[in-house]
Design a protein around this nucleic acid. Structure first.
Lengths: 239, 239
DNA sequence: TACACTTCCCGTACGCTGTACGAGAATGAA
DNA sequence: TTCATTCTCGTACAGCGTACGGGAAGTGTA
Protein backbone atom coordinates (compact mmCIF):
# COMPACT_ATOMS: atom_id res chain seq x y z
CA UNK A 1 0.00 0.00 0.00
CA UNK A 2 1.04 3.52 -0.66
CA UNK A 3 -0.24 5.01 2.52
CA UNK A 4 -1.51 3.34 5.60
CA UNK A 5 -0.50 -0.29 5.40
CA UNK A 6 -2.76 -3.25 4.88
CA UNK A 7 -3.85 -4.17 8.37
CA UNK A 8 -7.20 -5.54 7.23
CA UNK A 9 -6.22 -9.17 7.32
CA UNK A 10 -9.24 -10.61 5.51
CA UNK A 11 -10.38 -11.34 2.00
CA UNK A 12 -9.77 -8.42 -0.29
CA UNK A 13 -8.75 -4.96 0.73
CA UNK A 14 -10.28 -2.68 3.30
CA UNK A 15 -12.30 -0.24 1.20
CA UNK A 16 -11.72 2.53 3.69
CA UNK A 17 -8.00 2.03 3.30
CA UNK A 18 -8.35 2.06 -0.45
CA UNK A 19 -10.66 4.94 -1.22
CA UNK A 20 -10.48 7.23 1.79
CA UNK A 21 -6.76 7.94 1.84
CA UNK A 22 -5.62 11.52 2.31
CA UNK A 23 -2.65 13.31 0.81
CA UNK A 24 0.74 11.77 0.65
CA UNK A 25 2.94 11.99 3.70
CA UNK A 26 5.41 14.84 4.02
CA UNK A 27 8.42 12.64 4.41
CA UNK A 28 10.21 10.31 2.07
CA UNK A 29 10.78 10.02 -1.62
CA UNK A 30 8.20 11.61 -3.91
CA UNK A 31 6.11 9.20 -5.99
CA UNK A 32 7.05 9.08 -9.65
CA UNK A 33 3.59 8.10 -10.85
CA UNK A 34 0.01 8.52 -9.76
CA UNK A 35 -2.73 6.03 -9.12
CA UNK A 36 -4.76 8.05 -11.58
CA UNK A 37 -2.23 7.63 -14.39
CA UNK A 38 -1.78 3.94 -13.77
CA UNK A 39 -5.52 3.37 -13.71
CA UNK A 40 -5.97 5.36 -16.89
CA UNK A 41 -3.29 3.32 -18.64
CA UNK A 42 -4.96 0.10 -17.57
CA UNK A 43 -8.31 1.37 -18.82
CA UNK A 44 -6.81 2.38 -22.18
CA UNK A 45 -5.29 -1.07 -22.47
CA UNK A 46 -8.56 -2.81 -21.68
CA UNK A 47 -10.46 -0.61 -24.12
CA UNK A 48 -7.99 -1.25 -26.91
CA UNK A 49 -7.08 -4.89 -26.47
CA UNK A 50 -9.53 -6.36 -24.00
CA UNK A 51 -9.30 -7.27 -20.37
CA UNK A 52 -6.83 -10.08 -20.97
CA UNK A 53 -4.27 -7.54 -22.16
CA UNK A 54 -4.33 -5.92 -18.74
CA UNK A 55 -1.39 -7.59 -17.06
CA UNK A 56 0.77 -5.95 -14.46
CA UNK A 57 3.71 -6.09 -16.86
CA UNK A 58 1.81 -4.50 -19.72
CA UNK A 59 0.39 -1.73 -17.55
CA UNK A 60 3.79 -1.04 -16.05
CA UNK A 61 5.37 -0.85 -19.47
CA UNK A 62 2.63 1.50 -20.61
CA UNK A 63 3.26 4.02 -17.86
CA UNK A 64 7.03 3.54 -17.96
CA UNK A 65 7.32 2.01 -14.51
CA UNK A 66 8.84 -1.15 -13.19
CA UNK A 67 6.36 -3.91 -12.63
CA UNK A 68 6.62 -3.92 -8.89
CA UNK A 69 6.14 -0.19 -8.66
CA UNK A 70 2.49 -0.69 -9.43
CA UNK A 71 2.11 -2.36 -6.08
CA UNK A 72 2.79 0.96 -4.40
CA UNK A 73 -0.42 2.27 -5.89
CA UNK A 74 -2.67 -0.77 -5.73
CA UNK A 75 -2.14 -3.69 -3.37
CA UNK A 76 -2.99 -6.27 -6.02
CA UNK A 77 -4.46 -6.70 -9.45
CA UNK A 78 -8.01 -7.22 -8.21
CA UNK A 79 -7.83 -3.79 -6.69
CA UNK A 80 -6.51 -2.33 -9.91
CA UNK A 81 -9.59 -3.69 -11.67
CA UNK A 82 -11.73 -2.04 -9.03
CA UNK A 83 -9.92 1.24 -9.62
CA UNK A 84 -10.55 0.86 -13.33
CA UNK A 85 -14.25 0.30 -12.82
CA UNK A 86 -14.60 3.37 -10.67
CA UNK A 87 -12.41 5.38 -13.03
CA UNK A 88 -14.71 4.92 -16.00
CA UNK A 89 -17.73 5.45 -13.77
CA UNK A 90 -16.49 9.00 -13.60
CA UNK A 91 -17.84 9.39 -17.12
CA UNK A 92 -21.38 9.02 -15.82
CA UNK A 93 -23.29 12.27 -15.28
CA UNK A 94 -23.93 12.93 -11.61
CA UNK A 95 -25.37 16.42 -11.50
CA UNK A 96 -28.67 15.65 -13.15
CA UNK A 97 -31.50 16.56 -10.80
CA UNK A 98 -34.54 14.32 -10.44
CA UNK A 99 -37.45 15.40 -12.62
CA UNK A 100 -40.12 14.05 -10.31
CA UNK A 101 -40.94 11.25 -12.74
CA UNK A 102 -38.83 8.58 -11.10
CA UNK A 103 -39.48 5.99 -13.78
CA UNK A 104 -38.19 8.27 -16.48
CA UNK A 105 -35.21 9.18 -14.33
CA UNK A 106 -34.37 5.53 -13.76
CA UNK A 107 -34.65 4.75 -17.44
CA UNK A 108 -32.26 7.57 -18.23
CA UNK A 109 -29.87 6.22 -15.63
CA UNK A 110 -29.97 2.77 -17.15
CA UNK A 111 -29.38 4.12 -20.63
CA UNK A 112 -26.34 6.01 -19.40
CA UNK A 113 -25.03 2.86 -17.81
CA UNK A 114 -25.51 0.93 -21.01
CA UNK A 115 -23.70 3.59 -23.03
CA UNK A 116 -20.82 3.46 -20.58
CA UNK A 117 -20.60 -0.30 -20.80
CA UNK A 118 -20.68 -0.23 -24.57
CA UNK A 119 -17.75 2.18 -24.48
CA UNK A 120 -15.92 -0.14 -22.07
CA UNK A 121 -17.07 -3.66 -22.87
CA UNK A 122 -14.91 -5.15 -20.13
CA UNK A 123 -16.89 -3.30 -17.49
CA UNK A 124 -19.75 -5.78 -17.10
CA UNK A 125 -17.25 -8.56 -16.52
CA UNK A 126 -15.45 -6.75 -13.74
CA UNK A 127 -18.67 -5.49 -12.18
CA UNK A 128 -19.86 -9.07 -11.85
CA UNK A 129 -17.11 -9.85 -9.35
CA UNK A 130 -15.88 -6.56 -7.92
CA UNK A 131 -18.44 -4.77 -5.92
CA UNK A 132 -17.01 -2.16 -3.59
CA UNK A 133 -18.17 1.19 -4.88
CA UNK A 134 -15.57 3.93 -5.27
CA UNK A 135 -16.25 7.66 -5.16
CA UNK A 136 -17.48 7.94 -8.74
CA UNK A 137 -19.77 4.98 -8.34
CA UNK A 138 -21.05 6.43 -5.10
CA UNK A 139 -21.73 9.79 -6.72
CA UNK A 140 -23.79 8.04 -9.35
CA UNK A 141 -25.53 5.99 -6.68
CA UNK A 142 -26.35 9.20 -4.88
CA UNK A 143 -28.14 10.42 -7.98
CA UNK A 144 -30.00 7.13 -8.37
CA UNK A 145 -31.14 7.27 -4.76
CA UNK A 146 -32.39 10.79 -5.30
CA UNK A 147 -34.32 9.61 -8.33
CA UNK A 148 -35.82 6.77 -6.29
CA UNK A 149 -36.99 9.04 -3.51
CA UNK A 150 -40.56 9.43 -4.85
CA UNK A 151 -41.04 5.67 -4.77
CA UNK A 152 -41.24 5.65 -1.01
CA UNK A 153 -39.18 2.48 -0.87
CA UNK A 154 -37.14 1.98 2.28
CA UNK A 155 -33.35 2.14 2.30
CA UNK A 156 -32.56 -1.49 1.65
CA UNK A 157 -35.09 -1.67 -1.14
CA UNK A 158 -33.65 1.40 -2.87
CA UNK A 159 -30.14 0.00 -2.72
CA UNK A 160 -31.32 -3.34 -3.97
CA UNK A 161 -33.29 -1.75 -6.79
CA UNK A 162 -30.22 0.11 -7.98
CA UNK A 163 -28.01 -2.95 -7.70
CA UNK A 164 -30.47 -5.03 -9.65
CA UNK A 165 -30.87 -2.41 -12.30
CA UNK A 166 -27.12 -2.30 -12.74
CA UNK A 167 -26.95 -6.08 -12.83
CA UNK A 168 -29.62 -6.16 -15.49
CA UNK A 169 -27.85 -3.62 -17.65
CA UNK A 170 -24.54 -5.44 -17.21
CA UNK A 171 -26.11 -8.72 -18.17
CA UNK A 172 -27.78 -7.23 -21.19
CA UNK A 173 -24.70 -5.46 -22.47
CA UNK A 174 -22.55 -8.48 -21.74
CA UNK A 175 -24.75 -10.52 -24.02
CA UNK A 176 -24.98 -7.72 -26.55
CA UNK A 177 -21.25 -7.33 -27.00
CA UNK A 178 -20.69 -11.08 -27.12
CA UNK A 179 -23.09 -11.33 -30.03
CA UNK A 180 -21.54 -8.50 -31.97
CA UNK A 181 -18.05 -8.25 -30.53
CA UNK A 182 -14.67 -8.89 -32.04
CA UNK A 183 -14.73 -12.36 -30.52
CA UNK A 184 -17.48 -13.22 -32.98
CA UNK A 185 -16.00 -12.97 -36.48
CA UNK A 186 -18.12 -13.85 -39.50
CA UNK A 187 -16.33 -17.15 -39.97
CA UNK A 188 -17.18 -18.24 -36.46
CA UNK A 189 -20.77 -17.08 -36.80
CA UNK A 190 -21.06 -19.10 -39.98
CA UNK A 191 -19.70 -22.20 -38.28
CA UNK A 192 -22.23 -21.73 -35.53
CA UNK A 193 -25.05 -21.37 -38.00
CA UNK A 194 -23.94 -24.55 -39.79
CA UNK A 195 -23.89 -26.36 -36.49
CA UNK A 196 -27.38 -25.28 -35.55
CA UNK A 197 -28.66 -26.28 -38.97
CA UNK A 198 -27.11 -29.71 -38.50
CA UNK A 199 -28.79 -30.07 -35.12
CA UNK A 200 -32.12 -28.93 -36.49
CA UNK A 201 -31.85 -31.53 -39.24
CA UNK A 202 -31.76 -34.42 -36.77
CA UNK A 203 -35.53 -34.41 -36.36
CA UNK A 204 -35.52 -34.15 -32.59
CA UNK A 205 -35.54 -30.35 -32.54
CA UNK A 206 -38.66 -29.38 -34.49
CA UNK A 207 -39.04 -26.01 -32.80
CA UNK A 208 -35.45 -25.08 -33.55
CA UNK A 209 -35.87 -26.25 -37.14
CA UNK A 210 -38.90 -24.02 -37.57
CA UNK A 211 -37.13 -21.06 -36.03
CA UNK A 212 -34.17 -21.45 -38.35
CA UNK A 213 -36.43 -21.88 -41.35
CA UNK A 214 -38.33 -18.66 -40.69
CA UNK A 215 -35.94 -16.43 -38.81
CA UNK A 216 -37.59 -13.08 -39.37
CA UNK A 217 -35.55 -9.95 -39.36
CA UNK A 218 -32.75 -9.47 -36.84
CA UNK A 219 -33.56 -7.28 -33.88
CA UNK A 220 -32.21 -3.92 -32.91
CA UNK A 221 -30.37 -4.29 -29.59
CA UNK A 222 -31.21 -0.71 -28.73
CA UNK A 223 -34.94 -1.16 -29.15
CA UNK A 224 -34.83 -4.50 -27.38
CA UNK A 225 -33.02 -2.95 -24.44
CA UNK A 226 -35.50 -0.15 -24.17
CA UNK A 227 -38.41 -2.54 -24.20
CA UNK A 228 -36.99 -4.82 -21.53
CA UNK A 229 -35.99 -1.86 -19.44
CA UNK A 230 -39.36 -0.18 -19.64
CA UNK A 231 -41.09 -3.33 -18.55
CA UNK A 232 -38.73 -3.81 -15.68
CA UNK A 233 -39.02 -0.29 -14.36
CA UNK A 234 -42.69 0.31 -14.99
CA UNK A 235 -43.51 -2.50 -12.62
CA UNK A 236 -40.86 -1.80 -10.08
CA UNK A 237 -42.82 -0.49 -7.11
CA UNK A 238 -46.39 -1.29 -7.98
CA UNK A 239 -46.93 -4.49 -6.04
CA UNK B 1 -8.96 -33.30 -30.54
CA UNK B 2 -10.09 -36.82 -29.92
CA UNK B 3 -11.71 -37.37 -33.22
CA UNK B 4 -11.57 -35.27 -36.29
CA UNK B 5 -8.77 -32.79 -35.87
CA UNK B 6 -9.11 -29.07 -35.47
CA UNK B 7 -9.34 -27.79 -38.99
CA UNK B 8 -11.46 -24.82 -38.01
CA UNK B 9 -8.68 -22.29 -38.10
CA UNK B 10 -10.54 -19.43 -36.42
CA UNK B 11 -11.27 -18.18 -32.94
CA UNK B 12 -12.50 -20.94 -30.71
CA UNK B 13 -13.48 -24.43 -31.74
CA UNK B 14 -15.82 -25.53 -34.48
CA UNK B 15 -18.99 -26.45 -32.55
CA UNK B 16 -19.84 -29.13 -35.10
CA UNK B 17 -16.49 -30.74 -34.45
CA UNK B 18 -17.05 -30.53 -30.73
CA UNK B 19 -20.60 -31.66 -30.19
CA UNK B 20 -21.53 -33.68 -33.24
CA UNK B 21 -18.81 -36.33 -33.08
CA UNK B 22 -19.78 -39.97 -33.58
CA UNK B 23 -18.39 -43.07 -31.95
CA UNK B 24 -14.71 -43.64 -31.58
CA UNK B 25 -12.76 -44.86 -34.57
CA UNK B 26 -12.15 -48.56 -35.02
CA UNK B 27 -8.40 -48.34 -34.99
CA UNK B 28 -5.86 -47.34 -32.40
CA UNK B 29 -5.50 -47.44 -28.67
CA UNK B 30 -8.66 -47.39 -26.60
CA UNK B 31 -9.26 -44.24 -24.55
CA UNK B 32 -8.64 -44.67 -20.84
CA UNK B 33 -11.08 -41.93 -19.80
CA UNK B 34 -14.23 -40.34 -21.09
CA UNK B 35 -15.13 -36.78 -21.82
CA UNK B 36 -18.07 -37.30 -19.54
CA UNK B 37 -15.92 -38.31 -16.58
CA UNK B 38 -13.48 -35.48 -17.08
CA UNK B 39 -16.29 -32.96 -17.35
CA UNK B 40 -17.97 -34.33 -14.24
CA UNK B 41 -14.73 -34.07 -12.29
CA UNK B 42 -14.29 -30.48 -13.38
CA UNK B 43 -17.87 -29.69 -12.37
CA UNK B 44 -17.39 -31.30 -8.97
CA UNK B 45 -14.26 -29.25 -8.48
CA UNK B 46 -15.98 -26.01 -9.43
CA UNK B 47 -18.93 -26.77 -7.17
CA UNK B 48 -16.71 -27.57 -4.22
CA UNK B 49 -13.93 -25.02 -4.51
CA UNK B 50 -15.01 -22.48 -7.08
CA UNK B 51 -14.06 -21.89 -10.67
CA UNK B 52 -10.52 -20.87 -9.84
CA UNK B 53 -9.84 -24.38 -8.55
CA UNK B 54 -10.53 -25.76 -12.00
CA UNK B 55 -7.06 -25.99 -13.44
CA UNK B 56 -5.97 -28.58 -15.92
CA UNK B 57 -3.64 -30.07 -13.34
CA UNK B 58 -6.29 -30.32 -10.66
CA UNK B 59 -8.82 -31.87 -13.00
CA UNK B 60 -6.26 -34.34 -14.31
CA UNK B 61 -5.29 -35.34 -10.79
CA UNK B 62 -8.94 -35.78 -9.89
CA UNK B 63 -9.61 -38.27 -12.67
CA UNK B 64 -6.20 -39.92 -12.34
CA UNK B 65 -4.89 -38.83 -15.71
CA UNK B 66 -1.80 -37.07 -16.86
CA UNK B 67 -2.32 -33.39 -17.47
CA UNK B 68 -1.84 -33.56 -21.19
CA UNK B 69 -4.26 -36.43 -21.54
CA UNK B 70 -7.09 -33.98 -20.99
CA UNK B 71 -6.26 -32.42 -24.32
CA UNK B 72 -7.42 -35.58 -26.04
CA UNK B 73 -10.91 -34.90 -24.79
CA UNK B 74 -11.10 -31.12 -25.01
CA UNK B 75 -8.89 -29.00 -27.25
CA UNK B 76 -8.37 -26.34 -24.59
CA UNK B 77 -9.60 -25.14 -21.25
CA UNK B 78 -12.20 -22.79 -22.70
CA UNK B 79 -13.82 -25.78 -24.30
CA UNK B 80 -13.73 -27.69 -21.06
CA UNK B 81 -15.68 -24.85 -19.46
CA UNK B 82 -18.20 -25.09 -22.27
CA UNK B 83 -18.51 -28.82 -21.66
CA UNK B 84 -19.08 -28.11 -17.98
CA UNK B 85 -21.83 -25.62 -18.72
CA UNK B 86 -23.67 -28.04 -20.94
CA UNK B 87 -23.09 -30.87 -18.52
CA UNK B 88 -24.95 -29.20 -15.68
CA UNK B 89 -27.62 -28.01 -18.11
CA UNK B 90 -28.51 -31.68 -18.29
CA UNK B 91 -30.07 -31.22 -14.86
CA UNK B 92 -32.75 -28.99 -16.36
CA UNK B 93 -36.07 -30.67 -17.09
CA UNK B 94 -36.75 -30.94 -20.80
CA UNK B 95 -39.85 -33.08 -21.08
CA UNK B 96 -42.28 -30.58 -19.63
CA UNK B 97 -44.98 -29.85 -22.17
CA UNK B 98 -46.26 -26.31 -22.67
CA UNK B 99 -49.42 -25.58 -20.71
CA UNK B 100 -50.78 -23.04 -23.13
CA UNK B 101 -50.09 -20.21 -20.70
CA UNK B 102 -46.77 -19.15 -22.14
CA UNK B 103 -46.07 -16.58 -19.45
CA UNK B 104 -46.43 -19.16 -16.72
CA UNK B 105 -44.27 -21.58 -18.70
CA UNK B 106 -41.55 -19.01 -19.14
CA UNK B 107 -41.60 -18.13 -15.47
CA UNK B 108 -41.21 -21.79 -14.59
CA UNK B 109 -38.28 -22.01 -17.01
CA UNK B 110 -36.58 -19.03 -15.42
CA UNK B 111 -37.07 -20.44 -11.93
CA UNK B 112 -35.48 -23.71 -13.01
CA UNK B 113 -32.56 -21.79 -14.45
CA UNK B 114 -32.11 -19.87 -11.24
CA UNK B 115 -32.20 -23.06 -9.19
CA UNK B 116 -29.54 -24.56 -11.45
CA UNK B 117 -27.33 -21.51 -11.11
CA UNK B 118 -27.67 -21.49 -7.36
CA UNK B 119 -26.54 -25.11 -7.32
CA UNK B 120 -23.60 -24.20 -9.56
CA UNK B 121 -22.67 -20.61 -8.76
CA UNK B 122 -19.88 -20.59 -11.33
CA UNK B 123 -22.38 -21.10 -14.13
CA UNK B 124 -23.37 -17.44 -14.62
CA UNK B 125 -19.74 -16.50 -15.00
CA UNK B 126 -19.04 -19.04 -17.70
CA UNK B 127 -22.31 -18.36 -19.48
CA UNK B 128 -21.32 -14.72 -19.80
CA UNK B 129 -18.45 -15.59 -22.12
CA UNK B 130 -19.10 -19.07 -23.54
CA UNK B 131 -22.12 -19.23 -25.71
CA UNK B 132 -22.20 -22.19 -28.04
CA UNK B 133 -25.09 -24.37 -26.93
CA UNK B 134 -24.43 -28.05 -26.43
CA UNK B 135 -27.00 -30.82 -26.65
CA UNK B 136 -28.42 -30.33 -23.17
CA UNK B 137 -28.70 -26.60 -23.64
CA UNK B 138 -30.37 -27.17 -26.99
CA UNK B 139 -32.86 -29.59 -25.49
CA UNK B 140 -33.80 -26.96 -22.96
CA UNK B 141 -33.95 -24.32 -25.68
CA UNK B 142 -36.28 -26.57 -27.60
CA UNK B 143 -38.63 -26.58 -24.65
CA UNK B 144 -38.41 -22.81 -24.30
CA UNK B 145 -39.22 -22.35 -27.96
CA UNK B 146 -42.22 -24.61 -27.58
CA UNK B 147 -43.36 -22.52 -24.66
CA UNK B 148 -42.95 -19.36 -26.72
CA UNK B 149 -44.99 -20.66 -29.63
CA UNK B 150 -48.27 -19.00 -28.51
CA UNK B 151 -46.61 -15.59 -28.51
CA UNK B 152 -46.53 -15.52 -32.28
CA UNK B 153 -43.07 -14.01 -32.23
CA UNK B 154 -40.90 -14.75 -35.23
CA UNK B 155 -37.82 -16.95 -35.02
CA UNK B 156 -35.20 -14.35 -34.26
CA UNK B 157 -37.39 -12.77 -31.60
CA UNK B 158 -37.99 -16.08 -29.88
CA UNK B 159 -34.29 -16.86 -29.79
CA UNK B 160 -33.52 -13.40 -28.51
CA UNK B 161 -36.21 -13.60 -25.86
CA UNK B 162 -34.75 -16.82 -24.53
CA UNK B 163 -31.21 -15.48 -24.60
CA UNK B 164 -32.24 -12.35 -22.76
CA UNK B 165 -34.19 -14.27 -20.21
CA UNK B 166 -31.15 -16.42 -19.53
CA UNK B 167 -28.94 -13.34 -19.34
CA UNK B 168 -31.31 -11.77 -16.86
CA UNK B 169 -31.36 -14.83 -14.65
CA UNK B 170 -27.58 -15.13 -14.85
CA UNK B 171 -27.16 -11.50 -13.91
CA UNK B 172 -29.56 -11.78 -11.03
CA UNK B 173 -28.03 -14.93 -9.59
CA UNK B 174 -24.55 -13.61 -10.14
CA UNK B 175 -25.39 -10.66 -7.96
CA UNK B 176 -27.29 -12.82 -5.51
CA UNK B 177 -24.40 -15.19 -4.81
CA UNK B 178 -21.89 -12.36 -4.61
CA UNK B 179 -23.94 -10.76 -1.85
CA UNK B 180 -24.31 -13.94 0.14
CA UNK B 181 -21.42 -16.06 -1.08
CA UNK B 182 -18.34 -17.32 0.68
CA UNK B 183 -16.40 -14.43 -0.82
CA UNK B 184 -18.37 -12.13 1.48
CA UNK B 185 -17.45 -13.08 5.06
CA UNK B 186 -18.93 -11.08 7.97
CA UNK B 187 -15.64 -9.32 8.60
CA UNK B 188 -15.55 -8.02 5.05
CA UNK B 189 -19.20 -7.00 5.16
CA UNK B 190 -18.51 -5.08 8.34
CA UNK B 191 -15.57 -3.27 6.78
CA UNK B 192 -17.78 -2.35 3.84
CA UNK B 193 -20.48 -1.04 6.15
CA UNK B 194 -17.94 1.04 8.04
CA UNK B 195 -16.68 2.47 4.77
CA UNK B 196 -20.15 3.45 3.61
CA UNK B 197 -20.86 5.06 6.95
CA UNK B 198 -17.68 7.08 6.61
CA UNK B 199 -18.68 8.22 3.13
CA UNK B 200 -22.17 9.11 4.28
CA UNK B 201 -20.69 11.19 7.08
CA UNK B 202 -18.87 13.50 4.65
CA UNK B 203 -22.03 15.52 4.01
CA UNK B 204 -21.91 15.22 0.26
CA UNK B 205 -24.00 12.06 0.15
CA UNK B 206 -27.25 12.99 1.87
CA UNK B 207 -29.31 10.32 0.13
CA UNK B 208 -26.86 7.61 1.07
CA UNK B 209 -26.81 8.89 4.65
CA UNK B 210 -30.56 8.70 4.85
CA UNK B 211 -30.62 5.22 3.39
CA UNK B 212 -28.08 3.98 5.90
CA UNK B 213 -29.91 5.66 8.76
CA UNK B 214 -33.22 3.99 7.93
CA UNK B 215 -32.33 0.78 6.18
CA UNK B 216 -35.57 -1.12 6.62
CA UNK B 217 -35.61 -4.87 6.67
CA UNK B 218 -33.39 -6.87 4.31
CA UNK B 219 -35.10 -8.32 1.28
CA UNK B 220 -35.79 -11.91 0.32
CA UNK B 221 -33.84 -12.68 -2.88
CA UNK B 222 -36.45 -15.23 -3.85
CA UNK B 223 -39.34 -12.80 -3.66
CA UNK B 224 -37.30 -10.10 -5.37
CA UNK B 225 -36.47 -12.45 -8.21
CA UNK B 226 -40.06 -13.45 -8.69
CA UNK B 227 -41.18 -9.85 -8.78
CA UNK B 228 -38.60 -8.76 -11.32
CA UNK B 229 -39.25 -11.83 -13.40
CA UNK B 230 -42.99 -11.40 -13.44
CA UNK B 231 -42.66 -7.81 -14.56
CA UNK B 232 -40.23 -8.76 -17.27
CA UNK B 233 -42.31 -11.57 -18.68
CA UNK B 234 -45.76 -10.06 -18.30
CA UNK B 235 -44.79 -7.29 -20.65
CA UNK B 236 -42.75 -9.34 -23.05
CA UNK B 237 -44.88 -9.40 -26.17
CA UNK B 238 -47.45 -6.75 -25.49
CA UNK B 239 -46.01 -3.78 -27.32
C1' DT C 1 26.79 19.72 6.32
C1' DA C 2 25.91 15.26 8.19
C1' DC C 3 23.04 11.94 9.51
C1' DA C 4 18.86 9.25 10.48
C1' DC C 5 14.47 8.17 8.92
C1' DT C 6 10.93 7.50 5.80
C1' DT C 7 9.09 6.43 1.42
C1' DC C 8 9.28 4.73 -3.10
C1' DC C 9 11.46 2.23 -7.20
C1' DC C 10 12.13 -2.00 -9.15
C1' DG C 11 15.46 -6.32 -10.36
C1' DT C 12 15.27 -10.89 -9.11
C1' DA C 13 12.97 -14.99 -8.09
C1' DC C 14 9.20 -18.36 -7.09
C1' DG C 15 5.26 -20.99 -7.79
C1' DC C 16 1.57 -21.28 -10.67
C1' DT C 17 -0.83 -21.31 -15.14
C1' DG C 18 -2.17 -23.18 -20.08
C1' DT C 19 -0.35 -25.89 -23.51
C1' DA C 20 3.25 -27.36 -27.65
C1' DC C 21 6.07 -31.18 -28.59
C1' DG C 22 7.22 -35.74 -29.21
C1' DA C 23 8.51 -40.32 -27.41
C1' DG C 24 6.42 -44.54 -26.24
C1' DA C 25 2.46 -47.71 -25.35
C1' DA C 26 -1.67 -49.95 -26.95
C1' DT C 27 -4.72 -51.41 -30.41
C1' DG C 28 -6.97 -53.05 -35.13
C1' DA C 29 -6.03 -54.34 -39.87
C1' DA C 30 -3.20 -56.58 -43.48
C1' DT D 1 4.45 -60.08 -37.77
C1' DT D 2 4.34 -55.59 -39.34
C1' DC D 3 2.28 -51.27 -40.07
C1' DA D 4 -0.76 -47.37 -39.28
C1' DT D 5 -3.45 -45.30 -36.11
C1' DT D 6 -4.78 -43.51 -31.69
C1' DC D 7 -4.12 -42.41 -27.10
C1' DT D 8 -1.09 -41.31 -22.77
C1' DC D 9 1.69 -38.22 -20.59
C1' DG D 10 6.74 -36.49 -19.10
C1' DT D 11 9.18 -32.59 -20.22
C1' DA D 12 9.58 -27.89 -21.30
C1' DC D 13 8.43 -23.07 -22.05
C1' DA D 14 6.50 -18.58 -21.92
C1' DG D 15 3.71 -15.78 -19.27
C1' DC D 16 1.21 -14.75 -15.06
C1' DG D 17 0.71 -12.41 -10.10
C1' DT D 18 3.49 -11.07 -6.55
C1' DA D 19 7.00 -11.70 -2.13
C1' DC D 20 11.40 -10.05 -0.97
C1' DG D 21 14.80 -6.81 -0.19
C1' DG D 22 18.60 -3.64 -1.69
C1' DG D 23 19.32 0.88 -3.23
C1' DA D 24 17.79 5.64 -4.51
C1' DA D 25 15.49 9.90 -3.21
C1' DG D 26 13.39 12.78 -0.35
C1' DT D 27 12.47 15.31 4.63
C1' DG D 28 13.53 16.62 9.38
C1' DT D 29 16.93 17.20 13.00
C1' DA D 30 21.65 18.08 14.95
Amino acid sequence: MTRGGDSGGGTGVDPQQLWLTPDRPRKGRRPAFTREAITAAAVALADAEGLDAVTMRRVAAEVGAGVMSLYSYAPDKETLLELMADHVSGELPTDTAPTGDWRADLKAIAHEQRALMLRHPWLPVTLATHRTPGPNTLAFLERALAALRPTGLDGAAKLEAFAQLTAFVAGYVSHEVTRAGSAHPPQRAAAEARYLQAVAADGRHPELAEVLAAPGRPLEPEAMFTRFLNRLIDGLATD
